[in-house]
């Protein structure tokens, strides 16, 4: 039968397929070339263009970019207010990551181990919908919830907890005139927006924990707490790390959320935005973007070592 098929005249299409069949690498190369050119040239090329800019500097008097290699721009990163911007952003990203991991874990755990049938589908949709639905609409929702005359203030007063809200707002650094102009507000919105990115990989990792591991652990005399600490959690950790890549990276680079909900102290994203826009200081803006890139490169390297990419 194969013989008969091979003898049939097959035209140009057949001839081309024969070539590809004989040289499968050639087909792979042909398939890969266009997308690789796009990502490799357009995207990575742009990243290099950006990197290049960070080695130029801004002439203080003329306000023009001096196209000459210098490390002076990077030096500026380590000056007082700029260091503060970087530290503030990294601390925020770390806190957002830790808290989202804590909120995400029960949801992921329940969805992976207890939800069955339609419940499982419901959980999946309930996480996917907020993940994909409009980013700006979600931020906007929080703007009106956190407003001074808004939902949270009303509920706090209705529950006679107004003192608690005032107490939080009265705290140094994290407080402010209202939740929508404070770090607490910025933090809440970050956690809300990136939470689904933490749930999904954690759930994926938990689903891969074989049920008989847990039974074996119980048979060998471990109580549920011990089983959790020594079997379930270590196996779920790569998923949490995978989720943290998103929560951490997305918080590092975001400039919309702190602009809409937050105080006037800048985060890295806002600094980049103002520097390249109104200030016209592209070199410093470029140098600023290198900070999250370096942090994320290190983070991704660590994550890969912990096996986080297998759950993505």
């Amino acid at each position: 039968m194969t013989m008969a098929a091979a003898e049939r005249p097959r035209g140009i299409g057949g001839a081309i397929s024969d070539i590809f069949f004989a040289r499968p690498q050639l087909l792979t190369l042909l398939l890969l070339m266009p997308p690789l050119l796009w990502i490799g040239v357009v995207y990575v090329g742009s990243l290099f263009a950006l990197l290049l800019q960070s080695f130029y500097s801004l002439d203080d008097f003329s306000g023009l970019v001096v196209h000459q290699f210098t490390l002076a721009t990077y030096q500026q990163l380590f000056e007082g207010s700029n260091v503060q911007i970087i530290l503030r952003t990294v601390v925020m990203a770390a806190l957002v990551t830790v808290v989202s991991a804590f909120i995400a874990f029960p949801i992921a755990y329940y969805a992976a181990r207890y939800a069955r049938g339609w419940m499982k589908a419901l959980f999946y949709l309930a996480v996917m919908m907020p993940l994909w639905s409009s980013y700006l609409v979600k931020v906007y929702a929080w703007k009106l919830i956190l407003a001074k005359e808004g939902v949270i203030t009303w509920f706090a007063n209705a529950l006679h907890m107004g003192w608690l809200l005032d107490g939080v707002l009265g705290l140094p650094i994290v407080g402010g005139p209202s939740l929508s102009f404070s770090y607490v507000g910025t933090f809440l919105v970050f956690v809300y927006i990136w939470l689904p990115y933490m749930i999904l990989p954690t759930q994926a990792a938990l689903e891969r924990v074989p049920a008989n591991f847990i039974e074996a652990s119980a048979d060998l005399g471990a109580d549920p707490g011990q089983t959790f600490r020594t079997v379930i959690f270590p196996l779920a950790l790569p998923g949490i790390v995978a989720g943290s890549i998103f929560t951490f990276s997305l918080t590092l680079g975001d400039y919309i959320i702190p602009q809409i909900v937050g105080n006037s102290r800048l985060m890295i994203g806002q600094a980049v935005y103002t520097l390249q826009g109104t200030a016209g200081n592209i070199p410093l803006a470029a140098a600023f973007t290198v900070v999250p890139m370096v942090i994320m490169a290190f983070y991704l390297w660590m994550a890969k070592r912990m096996g986080a990419f297998d759950v993505l």
Binding site: A49, S249, V272, Q276, T289
Partner: peptide, 27 residues
């Protein structure tokens, strides 16, 4: 490495993609 390259545009913060493209358009 190539498959890592293909997830890079969403793994890196959007602002980096944005300003990188902008500076490439400038150049």
């Amino acid at each position: 490495s190539i498959s890592l390259l293909f997830v890079l545009p969403i793994a890196l913060p959007g602002i980096i993609t944005g300003i990188a493209l902008r500076s490439a358009f400038d150049i």
